[in-house]
Simulated scan of single mutants.
Amino acid sequence: MSYQAQIHPSLAATALPAVECQGVTVRFTTERGTVTALENIDLTVPQGSFLSLLGPSGCGKSTLLRVVADLIAPTSGKIRVNGEAPEVARRNREIGFVFQDAALLPWRTALENVMLPLEVGGVRRSSNRDPRELLALVGLSGWEEAYPHELSGGMRQRVSIARALVSGPKLLLMDEPFGALDEITRDRLNEELLQVWESTGTTILFVTHSIYEAAFLGQEVLLLAARPGRVRELVDVNLPTPRRLPQRETAEFVELAGHLRRVLETC
Rank of each mutant, 00 (worst) to 15 (best):
residue 183 E to C: 04
residue 182 D to Q: 12
residue 119 E to D: 07
residue 147 Y to W: 13
residue 93 R to C: 06
residue 163 R to I: 04
residue 64 L to I: 06
residue 170 K to S: 07
residue 119 E to Q: 01
residue 173 L to G: 00
residue 93 R to W: 07
residue 92 N to Y: 07
residue 180 A to W: 11
residue 147 Y to R: 14
residue 104 L to N: 04
residue 125 R to A: 10
residue 106 P to N: 01
residue 170 K to E: 09
residue 90 R to A: 14
residue 58 G to M: 02
residue 149 H to T: 12
residue 163 R to E: 08
residue 66 R to F: 07
residue 81 V to I: 11
residue 97 F to V: 13
residue 126 S to D: 09
residue 48 G to M: 13
residue 89 A to L: 12
residue 142 G to M: 05
residue 179 G to K: 05
residue 57 S to L: 08
residue 183 E to A: 15
residue 117 P to E: 05
residue 109 T to F: 08
residue 153 G to A: 09
residue 47 Q to K: 15
residue 110 A to S: 15
residue 116 L to G: 00
residue 84 E to N: 14
residue 157 Q to M: 11
residue 154 G to F: 11
residue 128 N to E: 06
residue 186 R to T: 05
residue 55 G to V: 04
residue 109 T to V: 08
residue 179 G to M: 03
residue 138 V to C: 08
residue 104 L to D: 01
residue 117 P to I: 03
residue 106 P to W: 09
residue 120 V to G: 00
residue 175 D to H: 02
residue 85 A to R: 15
residue 60 G to Q: 06
residue 58 G to C: 03
residue 171 L to G: 01
residue 50 F to L: 06
residue 56 P to G: 03
residue 45 V to W: 09
residue 140 L to W: 09
residue 109 T to E: 02
residue 162 A to E: 08
residue 144 E to K: 02
residue 65 L to V: 06
residue 126 S to Q: 09
residue 176 E to L: 01
residue 109 T to I: 13
residue 134 L to S: 14
residue 60 G to A: 07
residue 105 L to D: 06
residue 127 S to H: 07
residue 64 L to F: 05
residue 74 P to K: 10
residue 123 V to Q: 05
residue 52 S to I: 14
residue 102 A to E: 11
residue 53 L to D: 00
residue 151 L to H: 07
residue 82 N to D: 12
residue 83 G to F: 09
residue 82 N to F: 12
residue 61 K to V: 01
residue 154 G to M: 11
residue 50 F to K: 00
residue 49 S to A: 14
residue 54 L to E: 07
residue 45 V to T: 06
residue 86 P to I: 10
residue 48 G to A: 14
residue 148 P to A: 10
residue 69 A to M: 02
residue 97 F to P: 02
residue 161 I to W: 10
residue 123 V to T: 06
residue 82 N to I: 07
residue 106 P to I: 07
residue 121 G to I: 04
residue 144 E to D: 14
